[in-house]
Design a protein around this nucleic acid. Structure first.
Length: 298
DNA sequence: CGTTACCTGAAA
DNA sequence: TTTCAGGTAACG
């Protein structure tokens, strides 16, 4: 559920809350063992005990909680995961799956209804990460970097944006929003974008992600921050989950289709299917603008 | 490439 | 009862 802006919001909140705090214990609730991906809670707990958090990094949708022994706790929230910092006596959230006991009597709780989220303990954050594309808000994410990720691909551009190997951190909300802002049809083949469209998409990706961060992320269903508070970005979306509503820009009816297996929202008037320029063999010479007039020799 | 599985609850 | 869900990995 959380995408880059939601995860970045958590990172920003979490860092000052956990930096300098020592871990006294760690446990996983019964039935949630899978979140450690095969490692045992007692093994992890033994390694964590006595360590202190130093800082919190983010890479795509992954969080890296750095420890003072150089190790990193890598967390992925997947669809419904969230982190909460609570006093130990605070009422337990119903779907608490794992708990870090910290000095000072607080707990860092990993709450996750659907149990898709993961926690890894590694020497380097990289070890817990799959192949990930560039950070879309970093300096090296240029229009050219975007094009390197999309060129040659025949899949729908929406699907390409969701593939974390192409660009890290974009999910379903921000893919739809970026395509709307850049007026690109979500089903357009990724490699078919023209230079102006690539520049527009690059700018739209950065704008929608920055807006998302500025508004503390989007809380459509489950996402809440470290205090349990909701974000505000859901009040600013242009197309996401606005099926059958009028487009802000042109009043046409927003449509919902499925692209790459995911619900996709777009404005059919602002994001029309571009006419394919015919590459088919033709027996006739291509038409020219001045057909019948004077032709420049080539 | 699209589809299915992983889980569970909320909404239709 | 059925469908749907901010994600990803494993299918065919």
């Amino acid at each position: 559920m959380p995408e880059l802006p939601e995860v970045e919001t958590v990172r920003r909140q979490l860092e000052p809350l956990v930096a300098g705090r020592t871990i006294l214990g760690f446990r996983v609730m019964p039935g949630a063992e899978r979140l450690l991906r095969g490692r045992s809670a007692s093994e992890i707990a033994a390694q964590l005990s006595g360590c202190a958090f130093t800082s919190v990094d983010r890479r795509g949708k992954y969080l890296g909680l750095n420890l003072d022994n150089g190790q990193v706790v890598v967390v992925h929230l997947r669809m419904t995961g969230s982190l909460r910092l609570r006093p130990a006596g605070h009422e337990a959230e119903t779907f608490t799956r794992a708990v870090f006991d910290l000095d000072g009597g607080d707990q860092l709780r990993f709450v996750d209804v659907r149990k898709f989220g993961t926690i890894d303990l590694v020497e380097l954050m990289q070890e817990a990460l799959p192949e990930l594309g560039p950070e879309p808000l970093s300096d090296d994410f240029t229009p050219d970097a975007l094009w390197q990720a999309l060129r040659g691909r025949t899949q729908p551009v929406k699907a390409a944006l969701l593939d974390q190997r192409n660009i890290a951190g974009i999910g379903n909300i921000y893919a739809d929003e970026a395509l709307f802002l850049s007026r690109i049809n979500p089903e357009a083949p990724a490699g078919s974008l023209r230079p102006a469209e690539r520049r527009a998409l690059h700018a739209a990706i950065q704008r929608t992600l920055r807006d998302g961060v500025a508004h503390g992320g989007a809380s459509f269903r489950d996402y809440t921050d470290v205090d349990g508070a909701e974000g505000e970005q859901q009040y600013f979306v242009r197309v996401f989950r606005r099926t059958d509503e009028p487009c802000d820009d042109c009043d046409a009816t927003i449509r919902r289709i499925v692209v790459g297996g995911r619900a996709t929202h777009f404005c059919p008037r602002c994001q029309p299917v571009r006419q394919r320029t015919r590459q088919v063999k033709s027996t006739r010479p291509p038409r020219t603008h001045n057909a019948g007039g004077t032709l420049k020799p080539r």
